[in-house]
Every structure is written in structure tokens, then in C-alpha cells.
Design a protein around this nucleic acid. Structure first.
Length: 568
RNA sequence: CGGGACAUGGCUCAGUCUGGUAGAGCACUGCGUUCGGGACGCAGGGGUCGGGGGUUCAAAUCCCCCUGUCCCGACCA
């Protein structure tokens, strides 16, 4: 391609709307433009990058036995009613009516549609296993879209679905996809880690997320220094037996009420009473679809709402408002405690190990000290808190490390959740009707591109990994009005194109400075600078975007050098 | 949905507090000079100051309502 003919509207300054680096750089490099919150147009440069990533995905999916399909993105409510998710999915599901007032939605995912297809077409175990995938635009009316392509409302997703005759075979399908995902993200040049994950609304029994390690990531993950354990903090289990239990003397019975005027936060209370925060029990009032509940965690711990949700078995869960707090505790926010509380109490396992602790007094400006477990009734103990770096690895007791990640892929073992809901069955070898065992597997294409940029950039711009670069080589002629410069550039352009490389010839009538800056910004891996200065010696300059290395190469050996650098 | 901020040529922003002729830099058009790291000169074009209402002789500026955008939390590829 000739740069002068391409729409690559680069920006000199950071746009005000962007906060994270990948978003800024994608806007500055002229890759994307925003139409509305979380909804973007992909310009030619972005399209080329997407095509590269999608091609890698296709090759690996096909290698793993997948077949590409395209399912409708406009979906009737019927199948969603059948799965039960028409009611469960909430506002994230963008719903609308057609001219006949029939309910439809824009597909946020395709379990319903694919299961509907499969239940009609699969009759026999001889047709299994089967793996179908698509690369398609999804729509989720996210509560808070942000960071450009990192969390859009409209986004490109590869979603795959596996169908198997039994659990064992389903696990093989899962492993094959797991393997394919590893290859895909490796080929995209990403530093990533597969971690155990929570299954969320998609449902299912078992899942892994593929996390690209980046400080700007929205997810926190823990990984073990000693073994292969890694998990999303939402999921990470806590080894229940390892809490330092009461080595300290058993305190005498009898709690004391103390005045704590205006002391609402854990820091304020513990600072005021001069006790460590781990000697306080934090009482949080939550509102769930089962009414108000009280949650107890140690003062230095945080509640994990994902765990809490599954422990309580509820969908709706949020911290209670001031009104509910006043109703349940008879005190303003900041003074809730378990003693004498009228609602059901769920406590974290760590609380079981505590004694002689501080709690709220259920009365304004008052706390209790020297409280013990027999001073109130806990309805259930469970693992309901976030892991910390101080917790031991749940597998090997090793040291856990916290880091941040961008979730670019997610694999789920679904089991028979959807086949049961929609009645997707087959006849086994014995002529017996069985439920199809399913799995589903997603990759956020745009997010993968954004993550790649987060991991590969410097102060001058993007540094694309070769496999996903929009062009592999950029030719930058300096004095294009000189015949020898133009002829050499054109010659290189033609020959590289003939060799099948993606080449961008910057033939714009712009100053060299502008073109050098743009070259760095859009991150093409190899830059060839052709100028009359070097042509005197019959050489052109080759610069690696990643290393900054500059070499002069005889113009007749350029092809060989590029071949050498771009192979493997 | 809760909390915070912002909205002025294509972009980045000043002007708002203290009401009085809409500005700068970049970008854009034409001509000329430049040409290895965001060049220079001259001449130009381009803005209902997010929208609506109000106060005032007078509103980008003060007041009310709405909309949009961004950031922090719960949702997710």
C-alpha cells in the first residue's frame, strides 16, 4: 500500500478522551474512532491488524478441529426464555421489538442460538464430537464501557462451542481448546497466563481465563511462586486451615462497650483503640434477593462478592444503603456489629479463628471490645473473602504473588446446562437418549489487540509484534524527487510485495520528521529508509522498531535481509 | 445505577471566578523557500461557545433543566 492513498489519520497529541496507553495509541495511530461510548469504527490500519489476529485464530481453531460458522446477531427472545437467561441477563442484554412487537435482543453471546441449532441437527452419537466457532460482532450494553477497545459495548469476539457425547470426551475438547488458546496468544506475541476463573453468568462447572499481564489490567490474579497454581482473585480459594489460631491467651468473657465518636472506618476505629486491624471484625450489611444479610470478615480482609454470591445462592447482591443499615442495625453507617443483630449472619472462615475482637456497637459512636464468638450467633462460616499475598497457595502452601491482567480469552466447561434447558439430546450407541455435553470458548479480538499494544509500546508509539503488525515493512524515501531514491524505493516496494510481504510505502509529500514520527507511532516492525545520502554507497538503512537497531544494507541484499528477519 | 469531573474551529487548550467585539498552538487551502526526527515566510478558510429555558441593556461567562463524554465502584471477551 501507498501511504498517500491510505486513511491513517494520526494525531500529534493525546486525545482528551483516552486514559490508558492502548486507547491513546490506537486513537493517535489512526486505528479507531469513537462513534458513541464503547462503540468504535475500525479504520484501515485497525482492520489489517484485526485480520491478522483473526487469521491466527482461524488457523488454530481449524487445527483444533473447529469449523467456522456465522450465527445471527439479532436473536428472538424465545431461545433466551428457554434457557432462563431472558430474565437473568439484566440490562446488559440490549432488547428491542420488531415491527410485530416480537421481542428480540442483540447477541451478547451465542449459547442459546448454537444450542438451538444443534438440537435440531444432531441426532446421533455418530455426529459427535463437534466444534463450531465464529468471529463476530457482539453487543453488551455494559454498565461502564471504558479504555477504548478494552471494554467496548460493541466488540469483536471469537466464540466457539464444543459438543460431546460424554464428560470424558468433553474434557478432551476443553483441553484441545486450552491448547489452541495457548498457541493463539503465543503467536500474537503476548506474555500471558492461564488462570482458574469464576464462571459468572455464562454458567458451567469449570473454567480458565487467559490473562495478558499488564499493570493496566482490570483483573487481579494470584499465582504461586512454587507450583503452577494461578487464579483470578475472584476465584482464588483460601486454604481454610492455615490461619494463625488463638495462641494468644483466651481472653476473659465479657465484652465492653466503648465510646468511639465519629469513628466509622476500620482505620479510624483501630487507630483510636490502638489495636491492629486484624483484631477487628468488620460487619457489612448486604441487600440480596433474599433480603438483608450481615457479612463478617476480619478487619484487614476484603469481601469477595463473587464467592459471597455463590455461598448465599443469590443473583442480586449489593452493599446496603443507609436506610437498610439503619433498619437492621439501628445505627448509622460505620457502627454495625454482629451482637444482637436481627438478620442472618455469614462469617468468613478467618473469623472462626478470632477471639477478643472489636466489633461495631449497633449504636451511634459505640463499639464493643473483647467480643467472642459466643457473644452472637453465626448462621454459616464460609470462604467469602479476597485472597491476599499473605495467604498460602491453596495447592502447595507456596508463596502467592498478586498481579494484574487483561482477560483476553475464557474457556468454560459448560456441562449440560444449556443442552438440558433447550433439550439438546442424541441417541447413544445403545439407542438411549443422552444430553449433549457442552463447552464454550471466547476470545476478545479487539481486547487482544489492545493488550498487545499495552505490552508492546514505548514513548514513541506502538511496537507491533510481527505476526499481528498491519504491515511488516515500511519504506521511507527521504528525497523522493531524486530519481535514484524514487526508483530504489519503488523497486524495493515492488519486490517485497511480490514476495508476499505487507509493505507500506510512505510516499507522502511530508517532511521527513513527520514521517519518521508516524512510522514510530504506527509501529511497523521494519523500517527501510532510502535516501540519496546512503544511496551514494549503494546502501539503504534498515531500522528495527523494537530494538532500535540500525544497519546499512546494500540495496541488492535488502530482500535477503528481510527474509532472514521475518522468517520464524 | 451511585460518586466525581468536563463540554469553546478538525485536535490540544486559554477565556468563565469578576457579564461588555470569540482567542492561541497544531491541523487545513494557495504561493514560495525547505527536506534524516513533528521546518519557515506570506496570504486565506473554518466556531449556533453541547442543547433548551431564564436573569440582564448585554451571557461562552450568572441561575435552572436536559444531553453527551471521561474517571472511580458492582458486570464481562
Amino acid at each position: 500500500m501507498r501511504y498517500s492513498k491510505m486513511l491513517i489519520p494520526t494525531l500529534k497529541e493525546d486525545p482528551a478522551e483516552a486514559e490508558v496507553i492502548s486507547h491513546k495509541l490506537m486513537l493517535r495511530a489512526g486505528m479507531i474512532r469513537k462513534l458513541a461510548t464503547g462503540i468504535y469504527s475500525y479504520l484501515p490500519l485497525a482492520r489489517r491488524i484485526f485480520n491478522k489476529v483473526e487469521q491466527i485464530i482461524r488457523e488454530e481453531m481449524n487445527r483444533a478441529g473447529g469449523q467456522e460458522v456465522t450465527l445471527p446477531s439479532v436473536q428472538p427472545s424465545d431461545v433466551w426464555e428457554e434457557s432462563g437467561r431472558w430474565n437473568l441477563y439484566g440490562k446488559e442484554l440490549l432488547r428491542f421489538k420488531d415491527r410485530n412487537s416480537r421481542d428480540f435482543c442483540l447477541g451478547p453471546t451465542h449459547e442459546e442460538v448454537i444450542t438451538d441449532l444443534i438440537r435440531r441437527e444432531i441426532r446421533s452419537y455418530r455426529q459427535l464430537p463437534l466444534n463450531l466457532y465464529q468471529i463476530q460482532t457482539k453487543f453488551r450494553d455494559e454498565i461502564r464501557p471504558r479504555f477504548g477497545l478494552m471494554r467496548g459495548r460493541e466488540f469483536t469476539m471469537k466464540d466457539a462451542y464444543s459438543f460431546d457425547a460424554d464428560e470424558g470426551s468433553a474434557e478432551e475438547s476443553y483441553d484441545r481448546m486450552f491448547e489452541a488458546y495457548n498457541r493463539i496468544f503465543e503467536r500474537c506475541g503476548l506474555e500471558f497466563r492461564a488462570v482458574e476463573a469464576d464462571t459468572g453468568t455464562i454458567g458451567g462447572s469449570f473454567s480458565h481465563e487467559f490473562m495478558v499481564l499488564a499493570d493496566s489490567g482490570e483483573d487481579a490474579i494470584v499465582s504461586c511462586d512454587s507450583c503452577s497454581y494461578a487464579a483470578n482473585v475472584e476465584k482464588a480459594e483460601i486454604k481454610g486451615t492455615d490461619f494463625v489460631s488463638g495462641d494468644r491467651p483466651r481472653p476473659r468473657k465479657g465484652m465492653n462497650k466503648v465510646s468511639t465518636p465519629g469513628m466509622k472506618t476500620v482505620e479510624e476505629v483501630t487507630g483510636f483503640l490502638k489495636v491492629p486491624s486484624r483484631d477487628l471484625v468488620k460487619t457489612l450489611i448486604y441487600e440480596s434477593d433474599k433480603g438483608a444479610v450481615a457479612i463478617l470478615v476480619r478487619g484487614d480482609h476484603e469481601v469477595n462478592e463473587a464467592k459471597l454470591r455463590s455461598v448465599l445462592g443469590c443473583n442480586e447482591l449489593s452493599l446496603a444503603g443507609d436506610e437498610t443499615i439503619a433498619e437492621t442495625t439501628h445505627a448509622p453507617r460505620g457502627f454495625a456489629g454482629p451482637v444482637g443483630l436481627g438478620v442472618s449472619i455469614t462469617a468468613d472462615n478467618a473469623v472462626r479463628q478470632m477471639s477478643g475482637f472489636v466489633t461495631g456497637g449497633n449504636e451511634g459512636d459505640a463499639h464493643f471490645t473483647n467480643v467472642n464468638l459466643d457473644d452472637f450467633k453465626v448462621d454459616a462460616f464460609a470462604d467469602i473473602r479476597m485472597v491476599t499475598e499473605d495467604d498460602p497457595c491453596p495447592r502447595c502452601n507456596g508463596k502467592l504473588r498478586l498481579s494484574r491482567g487483561i482477560e483476553v480469552g475464557h474457556v468454560f466447561k459448560l456441562g449440560t446446562k444449556y443442552s438440558e434447558a433447550l433439550g439438546a439430546t442424541f441417541l447413544d450407541a445403545n439407542g438411549k437418549e443422552q444430553l449433549i455435553v457442552m463447552g464454550c470458548y471466547g476470545i476478545g479480538v479487539g481486547r487482544t489487540v489492545a493488550a498487545a499494544i499495552e505490552q508492546n509500546h514505548d514513548e514513541d508509539g506502538i511496537i507491533f509484534p510481527v505476526p499481528i503488525a498491519p504491515f511488516q515493512v515500511l519504506i521511507l524515501p527521504i528525497n523522493i524527487d531524486k530519481n535514484e531514491v524514487r526508483d530504489t524505493s519503488e523497486f524495493l516496494y515492488r519486490s517485497l510485495n511480490e514476495e508476499g510481504y505487507d509493505v507500506l510505502l510512505d510516499d507522502r509529500d511530508e517532511s521527513p520528521g513527520i514521517r519518521f514520527k508516524d512510522a514510530d507511532l504506527i509501529g511497523i516492525p521494519i523500517r527501510l529508509t532510502v535516501s540519496k545520502r546512503t544511496l551514494k554507497e549503494d546502501v539503504v538503512e534498515l531500522k528495527s522498531r523494537r530494538t532500535g537497531e540500525v544497519v546499512l544494507i546494500n540495496k541488492d541484499s535488502v530482500l535477503d535481509e528481510i527474509r532472514k528477519r521475518l522468517s520464524g
